[in-house]
Design a protein around this nucleic acid. Sequence first.
DNA 1: ACCGTAGGAGAACGCTCGTTCTCACGTCAA
DNA 2: TTGACGTGAGAACGAGCGTTCTCCTACGGT
Lengths: 184, 184
Amino acid sequence: MDSAVARERALDAAERLFYGRGVRCVGMDDVRGASGVSLKRLYQLFPTKERLVEAYLERRDERWRGRLAEYVERHGEPERRILAVFDWLERWFGEPDFRGCAWINAYGELGATSPRVAAQVRAHKEALRKYLGTLVADAGLPAALTGRLLLLAEGAMVTAGVTRDTGPARDAREAARVLLRAAR
Amino acid sequence: MDSAVARERALDAAERLFYGRGVRCVGMDDVRGASGVSLKRLYQLFPTKERLVEAYLERRDERWRGRLAEYVERHGEPERRILAVFDWLERWFGEPDFRGCAWINAYGELGATSPRVAAQVRAHKEALRKYLGTLVADAGLPAALTGRLLLLAEGAMVTAGVTRDTGPARDAREAARVLLRAAR
DNA sequence: ACCGTAGGAGAACGCTCGTTCTCACGTCAA
DNA sequence: TTGACGTGAGAACGAGCGTTCTCCTACGGT
């Protein structure tokens, strides 16, 4: 098996297991079993479990933000694009394997012990904030709106993750709409 | 040492350690060392570590919501009381040992493996929602506001926890003020 | 055909940690 | 005084798991 293929399969399995069950209760042997990549290969590709976790978060970060941006860019009107963020969240929350925000979960699990994971979480959230900031700026709205929209998105992710309900996304969208109107 | 005293000391140490470092990376022996309560006593009071975790979350829930309500009740005017929730959050975020929301953290760490902890988190969040609901109702505001305010509070807790900054509380307060005004 | 190398399966090692056990000590009732 | 009992200190047990090692097989170059 090609090294690149093995890497992808390992990351696929790691993502499914880490996100679905939590990082600490998934062993390297579970990743091996789910990926079909032998332990020897796994440790060649990722020298420690922590590196595998970092690679999992990094790849998921790229994909997650890529999918969000791709969905948002389908909409032309600037304010509509801001609301599209919450539409996308609602779709995400409705996916059968949705289990909350991977980074918030990872922060709860590893933030206190792994500075690298904590830094990745901060970077991910900062990137999301920056992205929202560009949407707000493109709509000609005051920058102060950015942080408030971020709070709505974070709150929706947490609440949907705990309740397993898509409703928080609609609540957040409505709140965002009010904030947009008031800022206009 | 009295049994009740030992229980309180054990819970004090457990709360400090579990909240500060995470549940899984704190061993029962750490709790023993920090509390001065012997392992034998600990296991008499809490038959398993999971029970200790549950007791920690339960006691913290009572105290947390009690302190919030106590602060809010100092304010007479109904809409002012809603905003006081966010003032209280800001104070909390500024405490030196603040490390995010204990229940969100616990959910990220244990939600996937411990149904009882997951249920406690849901119950805590539901209680917070209910409390906000009473504040909204007392202010004669539409019930739909409740969920949106909850999202702001949750988002503020997550963001403040990750960034270790009190700013999200002010952002949330300002957003809440706009939502209140628009709903009036 | 032969050898060196890579890879897979899975055993093994070492550590952590939840939980229980041992043993010695102090206490209190009879 | 004595013996049953509760308690503390800490060893011990057993499971889980990150990581490494062993051994065997397959294959590619000469």
